[in-house]
Design a binder for these strands. Structure first.
Lengths: 101, 101
DNA sequence: GACTCATTTAGCAATCCTGCTAATCGTTGT
DNA sequence: ACAACGATTAGCAGGATTGCTAAATGAGTC
């Protein structure tokens, strides 16, 4: 486990919020959420208007942000939603703006 | 108050998340939060590394996203943090990923 | 009105993002 | 080995973003 380096934390938040900036990527996360948190790249790709490679790159952005993890399964690749990280980073940031305090 | 048009809701979320994608803009929101939710454009600008016009444009992006509102005061302009909207839009989206359900 | 201060707008260059098509890689099945 | 399938990578064009400097606006002051 990495030390609680605040600089690293900031860079991670940067990548997470940058990843959430694109509607298709938020849609991918929601789709994953309501399909049990795990789908193959193909299952995800067929649900979107853009081409396969474009979706694949969106998935790469989400993976580099740590919002999904990849688990190869045969010749397919399962993408697994990292719910705790999404709630952790975004929730922590949003927590600064809570009414009380 | 606008009708609960889902399409409009989506477009608003787009703009909000796009606004949050830039570190300087998140920093502006945090700075506002911990200075009482209200600051003039100048007070905000002097705290950032970039030039005044650049900060001004960041503020415009936040304003178009509805995350801040502007209140002219004399020849200055106060930017007011729209906490309830930030918590509303981001919190609602994040709510879809809560553990239960 | 002329002048100053606070802030924004205009205009430009560099960079990043997103979409596509074509080519590639790794696994399965014959 | 070969072909088929799932998925990613490479390369490119169009458009958006971000930063800057210089010029313009708008409100207060003399």
């Amino acid at each position: 486990m990495a030390a609680p380096d605040p600089k690293r934390r900031v860079e991670e938040a940067d990548r997470v919020f940058a990843a959430l900036a694109h509607p298709s990527r938020r849609q991918i996360l929601l789709t994953l959420r309501f399909r049990g948190g795990r789908m193959s790249a193909g299952e995800i790709a067929v649900r979107f208007g853009c081409t396969w490679p474009t979706t694949s790159r969106h998935l790469a952005v989400l993976r580099e942000a740590g919002l999904v993890t990849v688990e190869p399964r045969g010749r397919e690749r399962d993408y697994v939603l990292a719910t705790e990280r999404l709630n952790g980073i975004v929730g922590e940031w949003l927590g600064w703006f809570e009414p009380e305090g």
